[in-house]
Amino acid sequence: MQTVVVDNLSKCYKQAVALKNITFGVDAGEIFGFIGPDGAGKTSLFRILVTLLLPTDGTATVLGYDVVKDYKKIRNKVGYMPGKFSLYQDLTVEENLNFFATIFSTSIEENYHLIKDIYSQIEPFKKRRAGALSGGMKQKLALSCALIHKPEMLFLDEPTTGVDAVSRKEFWEMLKSLKNSGITIIVSTPYMDEASLCDRVALIQNGNILKINKPDVITTTFEKKILAIRSSNMHKLLSDLNSFEACDSAFLFGQTIHYTAKQNNLMMPELQNYLTGLNHLQVEINPIEANIEDCFMSLMNQAS
């Protein structure tokens, strides 16, 4: 069964087009990720799905309900965590949670089991004002608040933005265990490396979905061969690679440069000679598997 069905959805604002005819479906019980930079249209899409915005064109249903007509039903059944930290900073941790429980006509006690794993980590600070929490703790509180009414689906708009790597890792572990309890989760993130933590991802850019699939399928079916190249002078290496005639793209990736060639013709010996000719030392060239970021950049280039 599909929990979300989006068909030819568009969203235009006065000056800009946020979403261009996008179509996708989300299966029950999966973690579905939208991966893309700021301004790709993720927030507009999420707001349409949680009934806060009206689509300009096309249709969308959530849990079988239409996002325009049946907005009241959807509001009862989904949990939503907006991109901006949206809790009351002048209320304590407990008061915030209590408030969100009551507006959904439930109580902390009633659904404590749902949030126990997450909330227990911040419970020692329950008398602290939300404004005084650290980034990671705020995020746990926000997630608890979004979960307290036992939603069937969770919409998390960039929950890990601006959060450090450790808190991010923990957050994804929490999502995994929520998924195991049967909740469908739709999450967006600008961090490409988080794609592999989703069951399926949609790569999104400028209001278009570039690709939808399982993350490992996206990377294994990537048609271009990639070389990871390094030398003692990376900056020079980058500009040299870019001026190599067969170069299709060269991008810094951590300690190496990911290189693709025109017509997929790597010409490794020629490349090696070219670089040694330019006095590069300790040159290492290794063929590697593509990652999501490689795919994303390649798709971005194709789109533009």
Binding site: R47, V50, T51, L52, K72, R75, N76, V78, Y80, P82, K84, F85, S86, L87, Y88, Q89, F100, I103, F104, S105, C145
Partner: peptide, 13 residues
């Protein structure tokens, strides 16, 4: 301004 209105609106209130 705080963005909390977004959550209130998305709730059954």
């Amino acid at each position: 301004e705080l963005g909390t209105m977004e959550i209130l609106l998305a709730s059954p209130l």
